[in-house]
Amino acid sequence: MQRVALLTSGGDAPGMNACIRAVVRKAVYHGLEVIGIKRGFNGFIEADMEPMNLSSVADIVQRGGTILRTARSDQFLTPEGRAKAYENTKRFGIQGLIVIGGDGSFRGARSFYLEHNLPVVGVPATIDNDIPGTNQTIGFDTAVNTAIEAINKIRDTATSHERAFIIEVMGRHSGFIALAAGLAGGAESILIPERPFSYDEICEKLLRGFRRGKLHSIIVVAEGASGGLEVGRKIKESTGIDTKVTILGHLQRGGSPSAADRILASRLGARAVELLMNGATKMMVGVSKGEIAAVNLDDALTQAKTIDVEMYHLANILSL
């Protein structure tokens, strides 16, 4: 292994730059050359890539987003698109590929390996934290802290006006952000795609709280469970309580990554380089029981990551 390439793909996540930095500097430390591919798999197909060195990744560990940019590529979903990308690996002498991204990015990387036998290692980076084979993904901690900061500020105004506030967070197919932010933020109800919920129970809990003198109520909803506006409308119709809705949206993707995300990204990026150097071909790096682990991409893409049910029940108990 003499030359490796890396790209970021799919939705951006805080900590991607810290991971890029770790990959480049770990590779340079071991005498490898590094090619940075811009705009994800689109750049791979279009040969939008250039050499990277120590200076390329200076002063980026604290920055959100990704200096390599990211994009979704319909063309890479086709064998013809992946064949064009493979021609560029020969043109640039690329012997291994590191893909920083989420589920869709890993599926593309796996298909590319199966068709062209280029060693690939995936690094899980998504605020949704929905990748099997790792306890946590790059960007999740920062996104949760962004939601917590919003909840804290909204709680102040909710108390002042004696209202119920609904806060919609990201999570089309998973409720990891909503559950973590709801528990840490003391939400009265947490609505996630993985668990059924009853509007009657939500409304009764709200009314019970106001009857005993509570000055406000916070409900956190993952976008995949229901729209925040719809939740607010139904609660107001059923209870008469004045409701306000805040949709955090892409605010959760941005911002300087937390210390936890910077450390996680650095550890995973460095380990990805080591795996390629040691002959790995179709792997993903992750965290298991506090240790960096290597997982076969097949396993990561065929299993399902489930929420912590005990944590969900605890949040309900503490919100009585």
Rank of each mutant, 00 (worst) to 15 (best):
K214V: 13
G224F: 12
D200W: 05
S226H: 13
G228R: 12
E223L: 13
E230K: 15
P193Q: 05
G224Q: 14
A225F: 10
S189D: 04
F176N: 00
G186Q: 03
L215R: 15
S198M: 07
S217N: 10
A181F: 00
I218W: 05
A187D: 02
A178W: 05
I192W: 05
P196T: 12
E201M: 07
R212C: 07
S226C: 14
I190A: 03
G185I: 03
A178T: 00
L191E: 01
D200L: 07
P196C: 06
I218K: 11
S217H: 11
R211Q: 15
D200R: 09
R195K: 10
I218F: 02
G224Y: 09
S174A: 15
A184S: 11
R208K: 14
I202F: 06
S226R: 15
V220P: 08
I219R: 11
V220G: 06
E188A: 10
H216F: 10
E204A: 13
E201D: 11
G182F: 03
L179E: 00
F210K: 15
P193F: 11
R212Q: 13
F197P: 04
G213K: 10
S217W: 01
S174R: 09
P196G: 06
V220A: 08
G175S: 07
G186R: 02
R212S: 12
I177G: 01
A222G: 06
S226F: 12
L215Q: 12
G209F: 05
D200N: 10
E188P: 03
I190M: 01
R195E: 11
S226Q: 14
R211F: 12
S189G: 04
G228N: 08
L206I: 14
A178P: 01
A178Q: 02
